[in-house]
Amino acid sequence: MLVCVGNTYVHKNGPSGRFWCYTCIAEHEYHRIDVHDMFHFCFIPLYSQGIVQSIITCHGCGNLFDGAVLRGMTDEQLAQTRQLIGTWLSEKSVEHIQKLLTDWRVPDHQIKRLVGLALGDAVRKCPRCALSYHPSMEHCLECRGALSQPQAAENKAWDMSFLVKPKG
């Protein structure tokens, strides 16, 4: 009599929701597929011994991501987004970019890291409206005023205080 026991992998549908897709650079619906390590007897799966991997499918672009994408950005995604933010810094204030990333539900600690890396170690401030800009900028995009000379960037240049606009 031949008895076959062992393990096999089975794909099962997991929960769906919304996440930040780093390929689309937008928030989209996702579908999760969990890969279970199943114990089988005579090639019949009997019970799951745990989830081996989760695969996320973006409904916007159709790309597949590891389940870790729901926990935050990978280093490669951070680099791509940092490059994009570097481009945006020539068109928008630091506070505008922070607000945009917050609206896209990028975690606060990653916003600070991304903007800090893209901004570098210097910042220019508008004396009229107190917005922060990349050192290469000459004029405020909000009020068109001349910006201050580049100053050493302090943490407050990219902290989350932009949510409460300073009076003045």
Rank of each mutant, 00 (worst) to 15 (best):
T87Q: 15
W88S: 01
R113M: 12
Q98I: 07
D108Y: 07
W104M: 13
Q77Y: 04
D103R: 09
K92I: 04
R82F: 06
Q110R: 13
R82N: 14
L101N: 00
I85N: 01
A68W: 08
D103S: 09
W104E: 11
K92Y: 12
L89F: 00
S90L: 09
E76V: 14
T81C: 15
T87W: 10
Q80K: 15
V115P: 00
A79C: 09
D103C: 11
Q83V: 08
L89G: 01
K99R: 12
Q110E: 15
L78V: 12
W88E: 00
L84R: 11
D103H: 09
Q83C: 07
L114D: 01
I85M: 03
T74E: 11
L70V: 06
R105D: 09
A79W: 07
K112Q: 11
Q80T: 12
E95N: 03
P107T: 04
E91Q: 15
L114W: 03
H96A: 07
K92T: 05
S90H: 10
V94K: 01
K92C: 08
W88C: 00
I97P: 00
Q83F: 12
Q77P: 04
L101Q: 00
V69P: 07
T102K: 04
T81F: 11
R113C: 09
I111P: 02
E95A: 03
M73I: 11
R105F: 05
G72A: 08
K99F: 05
A79T: 12
E76N: 15
L70H: 09
T87P: 03
L100R: 06
A68H: 12
I111N: 03
K112W: 05
P107C: 04
H96V: 01
K92Q: 13
R71Q: 14
V106P: 02
A79G: 06
V115C: 04
G86Q: 02
L78Y: 13
I85K: 03
Q98K: 10
R71H: 13
R105C: 06
R82A: 13
L89E: 03
Q98Y: 06
V69T: 13
R105K: 11
V115T: 02
D108N: 10
R71V: 08
Q98E: 14
I111V: 07
A79H: 11
I111F: 02
V94R: 01
M73N: 12
L114F: 05
D75K: 13
T102W: 01
E91V: 07
D75E: 15
V94P: 02
M73S: 14
W88H: 03
V69F: 07
P107M: 04
L114G: 00
K112V: 05
L89D: 01
R82G: 10
I85G: 03
P107Y: 02
A68G: 13
L114P: 01
T74G: 12
V115N: 00
A68T: 14
V94G: 02
T74A: 13
T81S: 14
G72W: 06
E76D: 15
T102M: 06
T74C: 10
K92S: 08
A68M: 08
R71S: 15
V69N: 10
L114C: 05
W104C: 12
H96M: 05
L100S: 06
T87S: 13
L101R: 03
V106D: 01
K112E: 09
M73W: 05
L89S: 03
V94M: 00
R105P: 01
R105M: 08
T81N: 12
